[in-house]
Amino acid sequence: MDDSIRNSDRAPLPVGLYPHARKVGNLLFLSGVGPRKKDSKDIPGVELNEQGEIVSYDIEKQCRSVFENVRMILEDCGSSWEALVDVQVFLTNMKDDFKTFNKVYAEYFKDIQPCRTTIEINALPTPIAIELKCVAEL
């Protein structure tokens, strides 16, 4: 296996053929990270109907879960939370969720302040409302 490919034993498995992260030089590039929990179909803060469609969700719970998943991946792949330099945020409902997201984000990122881009998108590949793509130093 390519030694630039990195994975975490604690984070949920990717939903496709890609690693949790990839090392290039002194940087670690994370694939998109959502709020799912390892070895569980449950998504923190998400209630689904029988068809697997979102009935309701709690963006604050999803944010906290995403941030913890990112932290685990960073640590397990040789970096750290404090080494984050860039965060891309994908929200499915900017109008309703941005204020809460921004409040929770400020709790977690106030001391490190990486660059950030927040984008509203129509949907994510699983029934979630937030996903992060990050770059950190090694």
Rank of each mutant, 00 (worst) to 15 (best):
C77N: 08
I112R: 07
N49L: 10
G16A: 15
F90A: 15
T117V: 13
E82L: 09
S65M: 13
I119A: 02
M72H: 12
L138T: 13
H20L: 04
G32H: 00
S4M: 12
D3P: 09
V104W: 00
Y105Q: 11
Y18P: 09
F101K: 00
I5Y: 01
D96G: 02
D96C: 01
E82W: 03
T117Y: 03
A83R: 15
V135W: 05
I54S: 08
T118Y: 02
D76V: 10
E68H: 10
L13E: 14
E137H: 11
T118D: 09
Y105K: 15
L27Y: 15
I128K: 12
P19V: 00
D76I: 09
D86H: 13
D42K: 14
I119M: 12
L17V: 11
N122Q: 13
L91T: 01
G78C: 09
P114D: 07
T117R: 11
L28W: 01
D86I: 02
D76L: 06
D39M: 04
S40C: 08
D111H: 08
F67L: 07
L91E: 03
V135H: 07
G25T: 04
I121H: 03
E137R: 15
R71P: 06
C63E: 08
C115W: 13
L48R: 08
E50P: 05
V89G: 06
R64T: 04
F67M: 10
K103W: 00
P14N: 01
P19G: 01
V66Y: 09
S40D: 10
E53Y: 08
T117F: 02
V89Y: 03
V85W: 07
N7F: 02
R116M: 14
R71H: 13
P127C: 08
R36W: 12
R6Q: 11
G52Y: 02
I54Y: 07
L91C: 02
N69Y: 04
N26G: 07
P14I: 00
R64S: 10
D3G: 00
P125I: 13
I119C: 09
K103D: 12
L48E: 04
D58Y: 00
R10I: 04
E131H: 03
R116F: 09
L27D: 13
A11N: 00
D97W: 01
F90N: 15
D96H: 00
L48I: 07
I121N: 11
L13I: 06
L124C: 13
L84F: 03
Q88N: 12
C115H: 14
G34Y: 01
P44K: 03
Y18D: 09
Q88H: 10
F101R: 00
F98K: 02
M72T: 09
